[in-house]
Design a protein around this nucleic acid. Structure first.
Length: 302
DNA sequence: GATGAGCGG
């Protein structure tokens, strides 16, 4: 036993893998000056593969980038130290040859481009485009409209409020009537997706309909704030954790908008407040990724 | 320790 123990059976396989009946590479000189190289190797699936290449050796300086030619002469190192010069098929991927065409007169190039009919059509389209405010039809963005906060967008006149505001606009100033219109609700102001459809009771509120309250009010009756959340955590994980208590309607994991780094707290909204209560009780103090979660009902807007 | 996100030319 000891006599033959030097040989680890596990190594045998490896040896076989590389050294079994792979025919040696062949080089065939063709009459036209090219060389055909046939190599055998194992591919990723462990199957034998044959590679045939017909190449023409070029030594002319003008044809081969001299710096590339030089690199081919470099001695290899590391695990490739014993390999011959030039690229080896099993360690080298020959990339696509991307040709840059730096231009000294890009202005002229740009002009040429404009002759392209497609580009021209596009330009015409853009030329005709004018900024048109959705509120007052003025030549500014809706967001910059002076009546942004006092008027509903055209075609969405809410009762007499919008008309009143139009009247004010004609007089060139905002007055008490306009202020009243604003009080009725900022229709037309942007509502972020998370807040859309929010209203008393949550369900049944028609989209965009005012529920006697301000816009921007989120239904947080069944929303939990979870703090001490691992920065590695993902929204899906949180959802999975809380879903066992009831239907989770929203998971918000706070992250820095620029860096994307998790800020370590999250909001979980439930469809049913009773589920939220249960989840709050059970999950407060829950160990998650080496941290202990703190779970409480979210404040603000109730 | 922290209470949320943000249109579109």
């Amino acid at each position: 036993m000891a006599a033959q123990a030097k040989h680890d059976w596990a190594d045998d396989d490896d040896l076989d893998e590389v050294s079994t009946d792979l025919p040696p590479p062949q080089k065939i000189q063709n009459k036209d000056g090219t060389t055909t190289i046939i190599e055998y190797r194992y591919n990723d699936e462990g199957q034998k593969a044959k590679t045939t290449r017909r190449i023409r050796y070029i030594t002319h300086r003008e044809v081969v980038n001299p710096r590339v030619a030089e690199r081919k002469q470099w001695a290899k190192f590391g695990q490739s130290a014993k390999d011959g010069l030039g690229p080896a098929h099993d360690t080298t991927t020959v990339g696509e040859n991307i040709i840059f065409k730096p231009s000294t007169n890009w202005r002229k190039d740009a002009r040429d481009e404009s002759k392209d009919p497609n580009a021209q059509a596009m330009k015409d389209k853009l030329k005709d485009k004018k900024v048109k405010c959705r509120i007052c039809n003025g030549e500014h963005f809706t967001a910059r409209c002076p009546y942004k906060d006092t008027m509903a967008p055209i075609g969405e006149a809410a009762g007499g409020a919008a008309d009143a505001a139009v009247g004010m606009g004609d007089e060139g100033g905002a007055g008490p009537a306009a202020t009243g219109a604003a009080g009725a609700g900022k229709k037309g102001s942007y509502v972020p997706p998370a807040l859309r459809g929010a209203g008393a009771g949550g369900a049944g509120a028609g989209a965009g309909e005012r529920m006697g309250g301000k816009y921007g009010e989120r239904d947080d009756l069944a929303t939990l704030r979870v703090t001490n959340v691992s920065e590695m955590a993902e929204e899906n994980e949180l959802r999975d954790m809380f879903e066992r208590f009831g239907r989770v309607t929203r998971v918000f994991l706070a992250k820095d908008r620029d860096t994307g780094m998790a800020k370590g707290f999250a909001f979980i909204s439930f469809a049913d407040r009773g589920d939220a209560v249960k989840a709050c009780e059970k999950m407060d103090g829950f160990g998650f990724r080496h941290l202990i979660l703190r779970v409480e009902f979210a404040k603000k807007a109730q």
